[in-house]
C-alpha cells in the first residue's frame, strides 16, 4: 500500500513535472515563435522594399518590322518597350497622385515639360486623373541613322477617370493614339514627345 501510495505520489510528481514541462515548453515555443516573427518583421522593415515593377507595368508590344532608315537592334527594341512601359506607369502615378517627382526618370524635353505643367495645374485646381492602362501597341515608324531618335505610333487602350477632389466627373474608356518621340540617354531611352492624335491613318 505504501509503495502504491509512493508510486502514486511519484507518478503524480512525474505527471506534475510533465505538465510543468509541457507548460514551460509551450511557453518557450510561443516565445520562440514570437521572436521569429518579430525578427522577420524587423528584417522586412529594414530591407529595401521589394518592388515588383513587372507586376505594375502596363503591357507594351513593339512592332518594328520594316523600320527605316535604320533597322532596330534586338536589345534596343527590348529597352524601348520596357522604358515606354515604365514611362506610362510613372505618368499614371503622377496624374493620380499629383506628385511629379518621378517623371524625370523616363521623360525628357517637351513631354516632361508638358506633364510637369499639367500636374502643377491639376494640383492647383484640386483635380486628379486615374488611368487604368489596358496596354499599348507600339509601331516604330522612324529610326534615325545615327540612332539618336525614334518615332513610334502608340495605340493604347486606356480608361481615364477625371476627378475633382473625390467627385468623379467623367469616365472615358476609348482607344487613344499617340505620336511618340523617344531619344536615347546614358542608360535608357526617354520619352521626349508624347502627342495624342486622331486615329486617322497617315
Amino acid at each position: 500500500m505504501k509503495s502504491m501510495a509512493d508510486n502514486t505520489l511519484a507518478f503524480k510528481k512525474v505527471s506534475l513535472g510533465l505538465v510543468r514541462t509541457r507548460l514551460v515548453t509551450t511557453r518557450l515555443v510561443k516565445a520562440a515563435s514570437f521572436a521569429v516573427v518579430a525578427c522577420v518583421l524587423a528584417l522586412a522593415q529594414s530591407s529595401p522594399q521589394i518592388h515588383l515593377p513587372q507586376a505594375n507595368l502596363p503591357e507594351v508590344h513593339l512592332d518594328a518590322d520594316g523600320l527605316t532608315p535604320r533597322p532596330i537592334e534586338e536589345l534596343t527594341g527590348t529597352t524601348i518597350a520596357r522604358h515606354y512601359a515604365l514611362a506610362w506607369r510613372d505618368l499614371a502615378m503622377a496624374l493620380e497622385s499629383g506628385q511629379a517627382g518621378g517623371l524625370g526618370e523616363e521623360f525628357v524635353g517637351f513631354a516632361k515639360d508638358h506633364l510637369m505643367k499639367r500636374i502643377t495645374e491639376q494640383n492647383q485646381t484640386g483635380m486628379h486623373v486615374r488611368i487604368v492602362d489596358h496596354g499599348h501597341h507600339l509601331k516604330a515608324v522612324f529610326y534615325s541613322t545615327d540612332g539618336s531618335a525614334m518615332q513610334l505610333l502608340d495605340q493604347a487602350q486606356l480608361e481615364v477617370q477625371t476627378f475633382d477632389g473625390n467627385k468623379l466627373l467623367d469616365t472615358q474608356n476609348v482607344p487613344h493614339e499617340y505620336m511618340v518621340l523617344m531619344t536615347p540617354g546614358a542608360d535608357r531611352w526617354y520619352v521626349r514627345d508624347l502627342e495624342e492624335v486622331s486615329a486617322k491613318p497617315f
Binding site: L115, R118, E121, M127, T162, D164
Partner: peptide
C-alpha cells in the same frame, strides 16, 4: 455651372 478643361499640359476649372 463648373467648367473644366483638361488638356495634355493644361487644366482649367
Amino acid at each position: 455651372a463648373t467648367f473644366y478643361l483638361v488638356g495634355p499640359d493644361h487644366v482649367v476649372k
